[in-house]
């Protein structure tokens, strides 16, 4: 016992500066990430602001039952999952492709220009993006439809077609975040050993071959890690943007869990119900991320833990 505590002290003393550096991060997680988790207790209570967390009566699993028995439960789940799935399938490879293309550019100025332009949209607020999408796609004077009409076709009522919503959403997401998300891959690309490219050239590899055999394996750990993290977020779709883009005509595809929670939970001040749904989603996300990590650990040597 004594030896273990002295060993702990030794670790502490030897690395005191590292610990100090780590401290703000640790505090941040304890205060803002772990402490609020105790608030989850309200999902099992009929939470009442005035009486406080402890004074509110227990209701057990009532709010979970309410959610699962809701007639809209399955459509909401399906919409949420499909939207997240499309975003992952199309949105995930996009920044990798852009990073590869940028990497092949010879002119540094061109590269920098493209990079800057492509990640500017990341800083535009969702409210504005949603508004832009609706206005551009409007059949009464929108930019896109003006072009369609100019080519002699009939205007399309984009925001009225349930079948179009997921596509529009995913494209706008890619446009908004592609530049930002390339940053991590571009960073990974700089770590690829230039000697490997030279060796490949000597062996007579073409450009495509070099990308395939040198570049991609070089950044594959970064790709796998971001993929696992993204899978964990499949159901976490930004609420505002969907909420701002939806209208009753496309509820079939555009009504997702977070917009439902907003209508039922927040507008009516039902904190317990909203939190219960959130916790439920969190558990599903955890299962997803755990599963993805498990598969990745089996199939390759890269994994989160």
């Amino acid at each position: 016992m004594a030896s273990s505590s002295s060993r702990f002290r030794r670790i502490w003393q030897n690395n005191i500066y590292l610990w100090l550096l780590f401290l703000p991060c640790l505090l941040y997680y304890l205060i803002f990430r772990y402490a609020p988790m105790f608030g989850l207790v309200i999902t099992f209570k009929d939470y009442n602001l005035f009486r406080g967390v402890w004074g509110s009566p227990w209701v057990g699993l009532k709010y979970y039952r309410l959610f699962l028995n809701n007639p809209d439960f399955w459509p909401l789940m399906k919409n949420t999952f499909l939207l997240g799935f499309y975003k992952l399938v199309f949105g995930f490879p996009a920044p990798i492709l852009l990073a590869l293309l940028l990497n092949e550019l010879r002119k540094a100025t061109m590269k920098r220009f493209v990079q800057t332009v492509s990640y500017l949209p990341h800083f535009i607020s969702n409210v504005i993006v949603a508004s832009m999408v609706i206005m551009f796609l409007s059949p009464s004077g929108g930019l896109i439809n003006n072009m369609i009409e100019w080519f002699g076709f009939k205007p399309i009522n984009f925001m009225n077609e349930p079948g179009m919503f997921r596509g529009i959403y995913v494209v706008s997401e890619i446009w908004q975040h592609i530049g930002w998300e390339t940053i991590i891959y571009l960073a990974a690309l700089t770590a690829v050993d230039p000697q490997l490219y030279e060796a490949a050239s000597i062996d007579g590899a073409s450009r495509m071959r070099k990308i395939w055999h040198v570049t991609l394996p070089g950044i594959s750990p970064a790709i796998v890690i971001t993929l696992i993290l993204n899978i964990g977020q499949v159901l976490e779709i930004g609420f505002e943007k969907v909420y701002l883009m939806q209208n009753p005509a496309i509820y079939d595809t555009a009504d997702i869990i977070s917009t439902y929670v907003y209508r039922v939970g927040m507008e009516q001040g039902n904190f317990s119900y909203g939190s219960a749904i959130d916790l439920f989603m969190g558990i599903i996300c955890f299962i997803f991320i755990y599963g993805a990590n498990w598969i990745s650990r089996r199939a390759s040597e890269t994994s989160l833990w």
Binding site: S131, I134, S138, S140, M159, N160
Partner: peptide
């Protein structure tokens, strides 16, 4: 307007 369900306030004002 065919998109009266999603018309933004700005668009409506302009019209």
């Amino acid at each position: 307007p065919p998109d009266f369900l999603s018309l933004q306030t700005k668009q409506w004002q302009d019209m």
